[in-house]
């Protein structure tokens, strides 16, 4: 199946920040089996990220506040992209920044080396930039427009769920030229240790991921699918092939697997291997048939998007 910039063998890819740059998972299975790979976020300069503790467990999920730790866009292009390019798999670069200028610089550079960009305007764990661009429709449209202008490849905008009306954001970035959406990023949360009386995570606030957020993701994808024409890469708590079907029915054209990679490093491969059986179980003959299937659309055009 084809999405803008991406020729997918299957609709399953690891989510940004949960797969590094692929190296750590290469010993577990052949990365060429993946639908695509979304790399860890790239910023203009090297970033150390937040202090530790950076993760905390939650019911059916986890909080993280890594803080966009990465070696910087130049080092990623030099050292990490070539590693992933050895595999027969489309690569998306996740682009982050503190200012519009930084987003544009990173996008301009790295878009020459990958198949698509995932514009990260939704990281909740950095003080500047990140989510501030993702919660204001005008700012989101501004950064999207400028990044689309310089990017050599299609741009997917990663939306934050930490907003009152995600449809408004989705429409704003679509109008600004986004080729697709990726949703959802983590929900902000906090845990406090009764023994120390302090937040467990050094950054205090972290992003909640895992099965706990799946219904939120499904709801948001369902709503956004009805309001935009561009394809959606869905994510948020996927752990089983049934979850994949659920995301596709809500309106996702492909899905990304996030923190489940931490529990089980083989999860992406297991989901790929189990997808056909799941399709059969629910009476589907193809992935395309599932996409948007919960919306009871009457015309085939809507169902088959893109």
């Amino acid at each position: 199946m084809r999405l803008p910039g991406l020729d997918l063998k299957n609709p399953i890819m690891p989510a940004s920040g949960c797969f590094g740059f692929g190296r750590e998972f290469a010993p577990f299975y052949d990365l060429s089996e993946l639908g695509a790979v979304i790399m860890k976020a790239a910023t203009g300069e090297q970033r150390y990220g937040n202090g530790t503790t950076r993760v905390a467990e939650a019911a059916s999920g986890m909080l993280n506040a890594i803080g966009l730790q990465n070696p910087g866009v130049d080092a990623i292009i030099e050292n990490e992209v070539p590693f992933l390019r050895k595999y027969d798999v489309p690569v998306l670069a996740n682009v982050a920044g503190s200012t519009v200028e930084e987003y544009v610089e990173v996008a301009d550079k790295i878009s020459r080396h990958v198949d698509a960009l995932e514009l990260n305007i939704s990281c909740p764990n950095v003080k500047e930039g990140g989510v501030q661009f993702g919660t204001d429709p005008e700012l989101a449209a501004h950064v999207t427009r400028d990044v689309v202008r310089v990017s050599a490849v299609p741009v997917y905008v990663k939306l934050s769920p930490n907003v009152t009306d995600i449809v408004e954001l989705a429409k704003a970035v679509e109008a600004a030229g986004a080729s697709g959406l990726s949703m959802i990023n983590t929900l902000t949360g906090m845990r406090i240790d009764p023994k120390t009386r302090r937040p467990i995570i050094a950054n205090k606030v972290g992003g909640l991921s895992g099965a706990a957020i799946k219904p939120v993701a499904i709801r948001m994808i369902y709503q956004v699918y009805e309001a935009v024409e561009i394809p959606i890469i869905g994510m948020g708590g996927i752990e089983t092939a049934d979850d994949v079907i659920e995301f596709l029915l809500a309106g996702a054209s492909a899905v990304a697997i996030g923190s489940a990679n931490f529990k089980n490093p083989l999860i992406c491969k297991e989901l790929i291997d189990g997808l056909d059986a799941a399709l059969e179980r629910y009476g589907f003959e193809s992935i395309e048939e599932v996409i948007g299937g919960a919306h009871h659309e009457k015309t085939a055009a809507g169902v088959l998007r893109p």
Binding site: E24, G49, R54, N261
Partner: peptide, 24 residues
């Protein structure tokens, strides 16, 4: 020791600053 996420080096939850250019 530190709270870990993946345990295989991918998530960068359990880092410690280092004395070189890499930084961690």
């Amino acid at each position: 020791e530190e709270r870990m996420g993946c345990g295989i080096g991918a998530c960068l939850a359990c880092v410690v600053p280092s004395n070189d250019e890499k930084g961690y």
